[in-house]
Nucleic acid binder design. Structure first.
Lengths: 147, 147
DNA sequence: ACTCAATACTTGCGTACTCAATGTTCACCT
DNA sequence: AGGTGAACATTGAGTACGCAAGTATTGAGT
């Protein structure tokens, strides 16, 4: 049970702090950042919305709304798919890439600081490996910085 | 960065699954359960709302609304403090205790299953210890079951 | 006794979602 | 060709919060 409580509390502590910084400095939430990041690393900087939703663990509805916000800010555009009319792509704009880059400076440093404050490199690797088992994802190295 | 991504994804995967079970089977959210649990283990099964908010990592506003819901369901009552008129206690009712006990059967088993699925006992203890550093909390043994 | 800052709680408002419903499109089968 | 079920994206409605503002009370200092 300790691990469960630790996961809840640790998650809350970290996301609150990092989200507050991101919102205050750049007007982006953690999920906004994650979406911009995923797009920045996708071929042609575009992804189907359904794939994006799956990647950031949101529903179709959630991704629609989140992307509406980013589109309103000029950070993403929509693009149609030539072979499937059901599909709409989310495309990262130049403004979006700039935004991501500027936000990354502080965000990545913040994450590093939070973890380095508590863990050695070995411990961090252990933690990462253990946590990756929870949702079956592969450990994802240096995943926080845009290309 | 892997640990950060693992924390986000692991947290999402676990809380989604466990919350869905709790809501479907008992009409309680994870935070509802946690509040009932904390009250069940408090002296006289009552706590100041401000302390409860701090324990479950909610704001005063958040705990007010959460307790409103539990009170409407008959699981908690309010009680005044004889020595400080600012303070209102949240008190667990008998119905609340019963609810907690019945929910605990499935919830605790669910948590155990999720963790045992991925970790040995030693790994679990390691994970718990590492996670507890994130918000400076003490490891909290067998904290998920009501008294 | 008075003042002020801190404390406790509630309420209004806004945000970020999920669930359910809906319409369009596609893949597959007969 | 026609029918059916699934995939995709959006929208309406509801939920669970946090932030800010507000009220009442208390403790500390003068």
């Amino acid at each position: 049970m300790s691990a469960w409580v630790g996961l809840l509390r640790g998650h809350a502590a970290l996301t609150r702090a990092l989200n507050a910084d991101l919102v205050a400095d750049h007007g982006l939430t953690l999920n906004d950042y994650e979406v911009l990041l995923r797009l920045s690393r996708a071929p042609e900087r575009k992804m189907r919305r359904v794939d994006l939703a799956e990647q950031v663990l949101l529903t179709a509805s959630g991704i629609t709304r989140l992307l509406d916000g980013l589109q309103a800010s000029g950070y993403v555009d929509k693009a149609a798919c030539s072979s499937d009319a059901r599909v709409t792509y989310a495309v990262l704009t130049e403004a979006g890439l700039e935004k991501l880059r500027s936000a990354a400076v502080v965000h990545v440093a913040g994450i590093h600081a939070k973890f380095a404050e508590h863990y050695s490199d070995v411990e961090l690797a252990t933690l990462a490996e253990l946590l990756s088992r929870l949702d079956g994802s592969e450990p994802d190295g240096e995943a926080c910085k845009p290309e």
